[in-house]
Simulated scan of single mutants.
Amino acid sequence: MMTDVLVAHSSEVEKAAFYRKTYLHVALSILAFIGVETVLLKTVPVEVIAMMFGQKYTWLLIIGVFWLASMLASKWSLSQSRTTQYFGLGFYIVLEAVIFMPMIYIAANMQGGGNIIFQAAMLTIAMFAGLSAVAFTSKRDFSFLRNIIIIGGFLSIGLIVAGAIFGFNLGLWFSVGMVLLASASILYETSKLKNVYTTGQYVGASLQLFASIMLLFWYILRILMSRRS
C-alpha cells in the first residue's frame, strides 16, 4: 500500500529515496522501451508497419487508441496496488513502443539513420537533464505551465487530426513548437515531484516523466529526420 505522506512534508531521507526510485524507474522504462521496440521491429511484418502510417484514418485510429489507453495506464500507475502500478507503467511502455514503431523504422532505413536516432536520443537526454536541473534548483513554481500544456496539447491534437484528414504537412515549426511544449511538460512534471506526489507514488511519477521524455524525443527525431529528407 502507498503511504499518504506528501513528498513536500516528508523527511530529507524519504525525499531522497522517492527521487532515487522515480528516476531509476524512468531509466528502466527507457531501457524497457528500447528492448520492446527492438523486438517489435524484428518481429512485426513490414507490411503491418507500413499500414500504420500509410493510411490516414488508420493512423488517426492509432492515435485515438493511444490517447485513451495512456490515460488508463496513467490511472493504473497511481493505484493503491503496487502490482497495478507496475502493470500501468509496463502497459504504457508497450504503447509507446507501438506508436513509435513506424517512425523508428523510417528513421532506421534512412541514410545515416542510426546516427539520426542516436543524435535525437542524446539531445533528448541532454535537454531532460538540463530542464530537470532548472526545475530542482529554481525556486520558481512551475504549476502555471499546467494550463499552457493542456491548451497546447488540445491544439496540437487538433492540428494533427486536421493534417491527417486534409493531407497537409505540419512542417518544421510545428515540431519546434512541440519540443517547447514537451520541455514545458518536463519542467511541470519535475516540479510536481516536490509538491504533488506522495512518497509511495514513484511509479506514477516516473510514468509522467517518461511520457514527457518520449514526446520530446519524438519531435526532436522528426526535426532531425526532416533535415535529411
Rank of each mutant, 00 (worst) to 15 (best):
Lys75Ala: 00
Trp76Cys: 04
Ser77Phe: 00
Gln80Phe: 10
Thr84Asn: 01
Thr84Asp: 00
Phe87Gln: 06
Leu89Gly: 01
Gly90Glu: 03
Phe91Tyr: 14
Phe91Thr: 06
Tyr92Cys: 01
Glu96Phe: 06
Glu96Asn: 13
Ile104Lys: 04
Tyr105Arg: 08
Tyr105Pro: 02
Tyr105Phe: 12
Ala107Tyr: 12
Ala108Trp: 14
Ala108His: 14
Ala108Asp: 13
Gly113His: 08
Gly114Lys: 12
Gly114Ser: 14
Asn115Arg: 15
Asn115Pro: 06
Ile116Asp: 07
Ile117Arg: 07
Phe118Ile: 11
Phe118Pro: 04
Gln119Gly: 08
Gln119Asp: 13
Ala121Phe: 15
Ala121Ile: 13
Met122Gln: 10
Leu123Met: 11
Thr124Leu: 09
Ala126Arg: 11
Ala126Ile: 09
Met127Pro: 05
Met127His: 03
Phe128Glu: 08
Ala129Phe: 14
Ala129Cys: 13
Gly130Glu: 09
Ser132Pro: 08
Ser138Leu: 10
Ser138Pro: 09
Ser138Val: 09
Lys139Phe: 12
Arg140Trp: 13
Asp141Ile: 00
Asp141Ser: 08
Asp141Trp: 01
Ile148Leu: 12
Ile148Cys: 02
Ile149Val: 14
Ile150Pro: 03
Ile151Arg: 02
Gly153Phe: 04
Ser156Ala: 15
Gly158His: 12
Val161Tyr: 06
Ala162Gln: 09
Gly163Lys: 08
Phe166Tyr: 14
Phe166Leu: 13
Gly167Gln: 11
Phe168Thr: 08
Leu170Arg: 05
Leu172Met: 13
Val176Arg: 05
Val176Asp: 04
Val176Gly: 06
Met178Lys: 07
Val179Trp: 03
Leu180Asp: 04
Leu180Glu: 05
Ser183Lys: 13
Ser185Phe: 07
Ile186Arg: 03
Leu187Asp: 00
Lys192Met: 02
Lys194Ala: 09
Asn195Arg: 11
Gln201Thr: 01
Gln201Ala: 07
Gln201Gly: 01
Val203Gly: 02
Leu209Thr: 02
Ala211Gly: 11
Ala211Ile: 10
Ala211Met: 13
Met214Trp: 03
Leu215Pro: 04
Leu215Val: 11
Leu216Glu: 05
Trp218Tyr: 12
